[in-house]
């Protein structure tokens, strides 16, 4: 496990075409997340929270600027290298778990390990351990349709951590869950951060999530402060 994987977004500009119009999502955005932090990105819809998460995970690329994870600049990596890098360094948890319905919980968690050189037995062992960590050992042979929403999300978290990435990027992981289950998931992420040193960046609208995070970034005020600061410098 790497402990010096700071996440640095430097002078990020991100825009996209919507019909004839160019929509600017981020302009000169800067952010540094230290290795081992548990950061929540909050704020109203449309500010580009998920876009930031996608940029950090190499799922999307900035129009300009730099995305540096540890010592690796990822925004200029070619697609094949980026895919390989992602498999080794990042775990994703989405609002919709996107588990494969044809595979059991064990099979779903083993899926990312198909890309590694581990043999069948080792893959099974790793997956069993990940399921144990999220408290789903007794449901290993169950298929997604046989699990509750919270259980599915736990399996998705097990899948995200099974290849032992240092960074977990979570996009509204509690968005589809009731309060109690959401708290359980947040506690689980907190445990992964505290006990295993995972750097966690979580996009959420859930105010309770702030209780678990080491840093809460309200994107609306963060962007505003950065803008004022920038204007001050110009004066």
């Amino acid at each position: 496990m790497k402990n010096s994987d700071n996440i640095i977004l430097k002078n990020i500009n991100k825009s996209y075409q919507k019909g004839k119009n160019t929509v600017v999502v981020h302009r000169d955005f800067n952010l540094t997340i230290e290795s081992g932090e548990f950061v929540t990105l909050m704020g109203p819809s449309g500010l580009g929270k998920s876009t930031l998460l996608h940029l950090m995970g190499g799922l999307d690329q900035p129009t300009s600027g730099e995305v540096i994870i540890g010592t690796q600049r990822i925004d200029d990596l070619k697609q094949a290298s980026l895919t390989q890098w992602r498999a080794e360094n990042i775990g994703f948890v989405f609002q919709s778990h996107h588990l494969l319905p044809v595979l059991s919980a064990q099979g779903n968690v083993e899926l990312p390990l198909a890309l590694t050189s581990l043999n069948k037995k080792q893959r099974q062992e790793h997956a069993s351990y990940a399921l144990e960590l999220v408290g789903m050992s007794d449901r290993a042979s169950h298929f997604p349709k046989e699990l509750s929403g919270g259980q599915e999300q736990r399996v998705a978290i097990a899948r995200a951590i099974v290849s032992d990435p240092h960074i977990l990027l979570c996009d509204e992981p509690t968005g589809n869950l009731d309060r109690q289950t959401a708290n359980e998931i947040l506690a689980l992420l907190d445990q992964l951060n505290r006990d295993f040193g995972k750097t966690i960046v979580m996009v959420t609208h859930d105010k309770k999530a702030a209780n678990y995070a080491s840093r809460v970034i309200n994107l609306e005020s963060y962007i505003g402060e950065a803008h004022n600061c920038h204007m001050g410098e110009n004066r």
Binding site: L59, T83, Q84, S96, R159
Partner: peptide, 14 residues
């Protein structure tokens, strides 16, 4: 589509 996107996110190449 969603499953393919998820697998790509997990590191499966096209």
């Amino acid at each position: 589509n969603n499953e393919s996107a998820m697998m790509k996110a997990l590191g499966f190449s096209a």
